[in-house]
Amino acid sequence: MKLLITGITGFVGNNLSEYLKDDFSIQGVSRSTSDKLISYDVLNKEVLNANKAFIHLAGKAHDLKNTTNEKEYFDVNFELTKQIFDKFLKSNCEVFVFMSSVKAVADEIETILTESQPPKPITAYGKSKLAAENYILNKEIPSKKRVYILRPCMIHGPNNKGNLNLLYNFVAKGIPYPFGNYENSRSFLSVNNLCFVIKELLENKSIPSGVYNVADDYPLSTKDLVLNIGKAINKKVKILNIPKFLLAILGKVGDVLPFPINSEKIHKLTGNYVVSNKKIKEVLKKNLPLSAEEGIHLTIKSFTK
């Protein structure tokens, strides 16, 4: 099967192309043109007709420092998706996978996030992803085509330098973990499990079009996460029970000055955000290849290389 992938040079794109390379003929799509990439400018009907599937990963990532204006998010996450999806609909390409986000639904959740929860995004990032989702969902899909909107939670894996890398640095350097006072549950997603889901969507024609949350099978507390990091690198973990109000002050400092943590990072690491993957598991009729702990261990091992 021949397929096109936007955002192929990014974290998910790199991992996905490596995961699929033995079973698919892959062509990357980008703003620039090279021996391995074609540009959006030449993405015409003929190019799409030559491919069975289109995976749209490219997007404007969530800016933790909040320095990006709203128009930039909508130009990339909505307008680009709209243009690409319109071309897909006019072509013979059969499968479209759009990488959205749980943030298209909610930045904070009190219970467990399911696909039935009414979307109420707060950030420009979430609003732009939801706008793209709505555009796709409001189009009539030809009977021979399949369209999937994926809402992953926090993705991690080899070469990812997100919040897990921050925690890894705490543990690897022997720095005491300061968030011992927090009791929470957060869903994570191993990029290996995400790649597995996408491959199943490409190959299994019986899976109906629709919106699907993607997450590992069960959430972890931040403490469990830190302890798993220590286990992965054979390092004893020191946990401190620093008062929450002091950590909040440090987060505010990080909001305005260069600092390892800021308010949003603290919230991401210690807040609750549990995502149900029941719907995608039911249609796949298969278990995800990695447990939450196994995925974390693979990610952390990659940091040590």
Rank of each mutant, 00 (worst) to 15 (best):
K2G: 02
K2D: 05
N14P: 05
N15C: 11
D22E: 13
D22H: 11
I26P: 08
K36A: 11
K36L: 13
I38S: 04
V47L: 12
L48I: 07
A53S: 15
I55D: 00
G59H: 00
G59N: 04
A61T: 12
A61M: 12
H62S: 11
T68C: 09
K71V: 13
D75R: 06
T81Y: 04
K87P: 03
K90N: 13
F98V: 02
S101Y: 02
S101A: 08
D107T: 11
E110P: 05
T123G: 07
A132M: 00
E133A: 07
Y135N: 03
L137Y: 09
K139S: 09
K139E: 04
P142E: 03
R151Q: 06
C153E: 03
M154W: 10
P158T: 05
N159T: 13
K161F: 15
Y168V: 07
N184Q: 11
S187P: 08
F188N: 02
N192E: 12
N192G: 13
I198H: 06
I207C: 03
P219V: 02
L220N: 08
T222S: 10
K231M: 01
I233D: 02
K235L: 09
L240C: 12
I242E: 10
K244M: 13
A248P: 04
G251R: 00
I261F: 14
K265I: 14
I266C: 04
N272L: 08
V275D: 00
E282M: 13
V283F: 11
L290T: 06
S302K: 10
